[in-house]
Simulated assay, not measured.
Amino acid sequence: MNDPRVADALALWGLEGCLVTLVAARENQVFRVEALSGPLALRLHRPGYRSRAELASELAWMAALEGRGVKVPRPVPANDGSLCVAVAGTFVDVLTYLEGTPLIKDGQVAQDADSSETAFRLGGTLARLHDISDEWNAPAGFVRPAWDVEGLLGDNPLWGRFWENPALTRHQAELLTGARRAAQRALSRLGPDLDYGLIHADAVPENVLVGDGAVYLVDFDDGGFGFRLFDLATTVNRLQRHAPDGAASRRFLDGYLKARPIDLRPLPLFRLLRSLTYVGWVIARIDEPGAAARCTRFIDEAISQAKTYLEYAKD
């Protein structure tokens, strides 16, 4: 591995000489490390995206979830006990490597996965994650992003000012701006009664691993405080893309409801909110390979969700 940061990080964890393979290079770079004790995941975090305090909080939360039986990667401390270390200006951490196949990769459902059963188990896993997070006493200094009203619909949302995406036509921008106002009114009215707490915020099929009859959740990069229905909407929207008949998303919701009660009536609002975030997210990445096609898809999905929600809101 030619990146000197990787070699320096390996030394901090006592992993010198281990075989290292790059397995993902999206928001973060993730390497598989063949350690004597078993495979590990070495993560080089995107500079400037998360602070040390945010990353330490993410790792503490993941450790709490894993310790209570949720199948997520477990943080592995460095030789000095640190969970997160700065190497040449890049924050680095190490996790246990979960063997499994993404539920969906490159648009294809894993061949050995029962998508209906996996969707049901995923719903139960998210319910368990929410329950444990509510029971857990976060350490002092715990800080994670907030997918609250401001984070979703404020003047500077977490993932960008979606209504200003340059690819929007004037009509599309007006529609999304109207949907934003309607959503702000609805959230102001519903907010006090909604289930709010720590959420994964990105439980899409690409972040769900299946293997040996188990369901694993990875990539807590955007996990933080938010509405539990936003967590559900994230998964439902993506499942609907791959299974338009709604069978997989219904099984997912059944799995959640079997483990944890929640009022699903406002779900259309959160399906809209989730779709809007992607229209903002892609703005800063518009020059990346494939971004133009993704941008078009995100806009089409958001426009569809906006029309559906505005009709729903009339009733």
Rank of each mutant, 00 (worst) to 15 (best):
F91H: 14
F91P: 00
V92H: 03
D93P: 07
D93T: 07
D93F: 09
V94R: 11
L98D: 07
E99R: 09
E99N: 10
E99D: 15
G100T: 13
I104A: 13
I104C: 12
K105P: 03
D106K: 15
D106V: 07
G107N: 10
V109G: 06
V109M: 12
A110L: 09
A110N: 10
A110G: 11
S115P: 09
S116Q: 13
S116M: 11
S116Y: 04
E117S: 05
A119D: 02
A119L: 02
F120K: 02
R121V: 02
L122H: 02
G123M: 02
G124L: 03
G124P: 03
A127C: 11
H130S: 08
D131C: 11
I132P: 07
S133F: 02
S133K: 04
S133A: 15
S133D: 07
D134V: 11
D134M: 13
E135K: 06
E135S: 15
E135L: 13
W136Q: 06
W136T: 10
A138F: 04
G141T: 05
G141S: 05
V143Q: 11
P145S: 02
A146K: 03
W147K: 01
W147L: 00
D148V: 07
D148H: 10
E150H: 06
G151V: 00
G154Y: 04
G154L: 03
D155I: 03
N156I: 01
P157L: 01
P157N: 05
G160K: 03
R161A: 04
R161S: 02
F162M: 06
W163P: 02
E164M: 09
N165H: 05
N165T: 09
N165Y: 03
A167G: 13
L168T: 12
L168E: 11
H171K: 14
H171E: 14
Q172T: 13
Q172H: 11
E174T: 09
T177H: 00
G178H: 10
A179D: 06
A179G: 04
A182I: 04
